[in-house]
Amino acid sequence: MDVFLQILVAGFLKGGLYALIGIGMTLIMGVMGIINLAHGQLMMVAMYVTFVLHSFFGVDPYLSLFVAMPALFLLGVVIQKYLLNPLIKAETILPENQVLMTVGIGMVLTEVIRFIFKSDYKSVTTSYTGATFFLGSISFSWALVVAFGIAVAFTVAMFFFLIKTDLGRSIRATAQDKDAAILMGVNTRRITVITFGLGTALVACAGTLLVPVYYVFPDLGGPFTAKAFIITILGGLGSTVGAIFGGVTLGLAESLGATYLGMEYEDIVGLTIFVLVLLFLPGGFKRLTKV
């Protein structure tokens, strides 16, 4: 029983970070109607920012959130403004070409990072990397608990922003009916740029929080893009609440799978759920929650 609880706790904490990754993806998906296949690669870039700040300047990974998130926000803005939006102008180009563009961006990011840092696995060791505390007989990793707390704080802030501010409402309005949003005076082109920046900043946050408990290497982008994709499909494309459920579900499923089936099956569990959801619950959790 203790083992089971331990697994649930670990999965749930990881799920908080996955939710943050998923929200970034689902925002971009909702507003632009495309899957951002460079999502994990952008997270990888944020992780290298954090790694460099720590190993060359001794900055604590949590403090480097203040650098990594704005930096990746800007990178996202540049990508949307100069690489993705120009594709909309040519009427003959299908929206699918924007997806292909994100694939290309992901590859370029990976190879540029590989060129600079080589393919080696790096890790950031801090005083709290291995630290744990116990509640009853269940152990909690400090780093994961803090990461979970920060992830929840950003998720709540994001909800507040989307529901309570004009800019947030304009983002949701653009996702629901772009032409009507234009009629209401929303500059939808600017909205796409801001949204891509926000989505990228959120995944940068998740990446930075992962750094103390994970490895950093150039190829980690691909698997995390796949995870982000699974989370958004689980939650229902474009649904923010769904992304949270999707993230937690994936975190729990991976933990359970890794323990009861074996470490090597961790990713298979996620993909299996993905296929099952597509087959039996197309539309994801969004269909159940209606949000």
């Binding site: 004009d166 409402r169 304009s170 949701r172 309005a173 629901q176 009916d177 032409d179 009507a180 949003a181 009629l183 209401m184 005076g185 929303v186």
Partner: peptide, 17 residues
């Protein structure tokens, strides 16, 4: 062309940007 998933009040607010 309402914003279907937003509340009535949010739709109205969207008119006053």
């Amino acid at each position: 062309r309402l914003f279907r998933e937003m509340s009535v009040e949010e739709n109205l607010i969207m008119g006053s940007l």
